[in-house]
Simulated scan of single mutants.
Amino acid sequence: MTLTLTQVAKTFSGATRALLPTDLTVEQGEILSLLGPSGCGKTTLLRIIAGLERADPGAKIRFDGEDVTTQPVEKRKIGMVFQSYALFPNMSVRGNIGYGLKMQGLPRAEIAARVEEVIALCQLAPYAERPVTALSGGQRQRVALARAVAPRPRVLLLDEPLSALDAALRTQLRDELAVLLRRFGITAIFVTHDQDEAMAIADRVAVMSHGRIAQIGTPEALYRNPATTFVARFVGDAMALGGRLEGAELHLPGGSLPLPSSSPGHDVFVRAEDIRLDAQGPLTARVESVTFLGTHYRIALHGVAHEPLFALHSGLSAPRPGEEVRLAIAPERLILLPKEPA
């Protein structure tokens, strides 16, 4: 199903603009993430798509061309997975998955066939007769997905589906969720504030800020070509270098860097993985702290720019705090963005 939103906005009481007029198209079978900090409007947008919130007058919501703007939630044929999963603790896995189908009044044979289908898709056969209270967090997530998909919804909506899990389990289930959503082949939209989660799962990511979509694109496009300072900082933690631009050179407290081109009126950003320790590098910095993270070191650097910088170093050893080091940054790894109004 193709989802099309036109001029979708939401104003709450007291003239609070939770969502500014938004246009968005999600293609058949596409997985889209709404990514942003708390209060940016992503959950409001998801609830409007579901029919749980009514958009401001003038909005249009279309499912495969059908106008569902004023349709109530129960008529939109939406599948939803919430943070809490909202499973029935007194029912088995099979009972939870089949409950919505029973409420639709489907024949018993069709219910049984659909339940078996999603149990197989979600690899839940060994747990089918267990109560959901006997399952792990990851298994419960799979039950919630199976229950949402069993009625064959037109679109699947997920609201922070991994946020209730601990960090180690989130990483494991993030990859599992990406596989399951593609196996379903269903149009899916999920809300998250976790950039790693969005980039690992989604075909496209819509980065939201202050009630609007700041930029939308593939994870690679957002990371490599952010359109705004907000997107550069939020996706990949880009750091501002500051300094003074003169032609195609950036002058910093710790030295000068060549730029890809002369860029007056721009700010320059860099990501931690693009700062290299290099004895012949043009920049000088003092090591403030070193954190060992297993696959690499995270080194805090002072004196090279007006603000502290961090570098990711994958060598077998790292400099000690207090040492002076030389740094290099390849010109093509710098991110140049137009200055934003103060």
Rank of each mutant, 00 (worst) to 15 (best):
L3I: 13
L5K: 11
G14W: 12
A15H: 12
A15D: 15
T16F: 15
R17E: 06
L19E: 14
T25F: 02
E27R: 14
G29Y: 02
E30P: 00
S38F: 10
S38K: 08
G39M: 02
L46M: 10
I48L: 11
I48W: 01
I49K: 07
A50N: 08
G51W: 03
G51L: 02
D56N: 13
G58R: 12
D64N: 14
G65T: 08
D67Y: 05
R76Y: 00
R76N: 02
K77P: 06
K77V: 10
M80D: 04
Y85M: 04
A86E: 13
L87R: 07
L87S: 01
M91I: 11
S92L: 07
G100W: 03
G105D: 01
L106Q: 04
L106H: 04
P107S: 07
A113Y: 00
V115P: 00
V118A: 06
A125W: 06
E129M: 05
A134G: 02
L135I: 10
G137N: 02
Q139M: 11
Q141Y: 07
Q141G: 08
V143P: 06
A144W: 03
R147Y: 01
R152M: 10
P153R: 13
R154M: 05
D159R: 06
D159T: 00
E160D: 14
P161F: 07
L162N: 02
L165E: 11
D166Y: 11
A167Y: 12
L169Y: 09
Q172M: 10
L173A: 01
L181I: 13
R183C: 05
R183L: 08
R183E: 09
I186E: 04
I186T: 06
T187V: 03
A188I: 00
T192G: 04
H193C: 07
D196V: 10
I201K: 06
I201N: 01
A202T: 04
A202R: 06
R204S: 05
G211N: 08
R212W: 01
I216W: 02
T218N: 05
P219Q: 05
E220F: 01
A221C: 12
V231E: 03
A232T: 13
A238I: 10
M239G: 05
A240F: 03
G242E: 08
G243I: 09
R244H: 12
E246S: 13
A248S: 13
L250D: 10
H251F: 03
L252M: 07
G254S: 08
G255T: 04
L259V: 12
P260W: 12
P260H: 00
P264G: 09
P264W: 13
G265I: 11
F269M: 14
E273W: 08
D274T: 08
A279Q: 14
Q280E: 15
P282M: 14
R286Y: 03
R286V: 06
V290T: 15
T291N: 13
F292N: 12
L293M: 14
G294E: 11
H296P: 00
H296V: 01
L301P: 09
E307T: 15
P308F: 09
F310Y: 14
F310E: 14
L316D: 15
A318W: 03
R320F: 01
P321F: 05
A330D: 15
P331Q: 04
P341F: 03
P341M: 06
A342I: 09
